[in-house]
Amino acid sequence: MNQHLFIAPVDIQSPRWQQAFPSALIATDAAQLAQAGCVWMLLRDTDDFAQLETLAKSGVKTIAMTLVESAEQARLALEVGASGYVHYLAAPVVLEQVAQVVAAGGMWLGADLMRQLVLATARSIPAVPANATRATVNGAKVDLSQLTSRELAVAELVAAGKTNKEVARELDITERTVKAHLGSAFEKLKVRDRLHLVLVMAAKT
């Protein structure tokens, strides 16, 4: 994912994009798509979502950019295949972080938006038996019994939408310990982020 292509109207293009990626291509359409390993697209109307979906389905990594961040727009962007969602004026260092996460197969959202989506997702999924030890996600079995009791406790609280600080307070452990348990749970369950964890924990059977 070496070459980055930014698609946006001329009057909304930002110099920060090439500050983050000096060799980035900046265009008003996807004419140079063949040269890109990652496409950053500014979302303004429903037509942009359709184009974003087409790009994502073509197999290219896509990142949605926005003029004003909103949980609903972020959800729609992810639903049509975007691997990330970020403000178009994000600092170069943030853009670099987004690219690294997406290149590694992850999904990028700002912390506040991630929390909103995790909470919304957790609330929309029916409750499952607390003693369940297996889950099926996208047809693949996930064995929750491989988690230690503390890793499972942390995972369940995070999947319920709690922050690391709230989990630490509830379990009477440090935030550093929460991060360690969460990282271990992510690795064992092969999940990429908190939203993915919500789906895994909700799929317990």
Rank of each mutant, 00 (worst) to 15 (best):
Q3E: 09
L5D: 09
F6M: 14
F6H: 11
P15N: 14
R16V: 08
F21A: 04
F21D: 06
I26E: 10
T28A: 06
G37C: 01
C38P: 03
V39I: 15
V39C: 05
F49V: 08
Q51P: 03
A56L: 14
S58E: 11
S58T: 07
S58L: 01
G59W: 02
I63C: 10
L67Q: 13
E72R: 03
E72H: 03
A77E: 11
V86F: 12
A90R: 10
P92L: 02
E96W: 07
E96M: 06
E96I: 10
A99I: 02
V102P: 00
A104R: 14
D112A: 12
L113M: 12
M114F: 01
A120P: 09
T121G: 12
R123P: 06
S124L: 06
P126F: 05
A127L: 14
V128H: 04
P129A: 13
T133N: 11
T133Y: 06
V137L: 15
G139A: 11
L147P: 07
S149F: 05
E151G: 00
V154I: 12
A160L: 13
K162C: 09
T163Y: 00
N164F: 12
K165I: 13
A168Q: 00
A168W: 04
E170A: 13
D172P: 08
D172G: 02
E175T: 13
T177P: 03
V178T: 00
L195Y: 14
L197R: 11
V198F: 09
L199E: 15
M201V: 02
A203V: 04
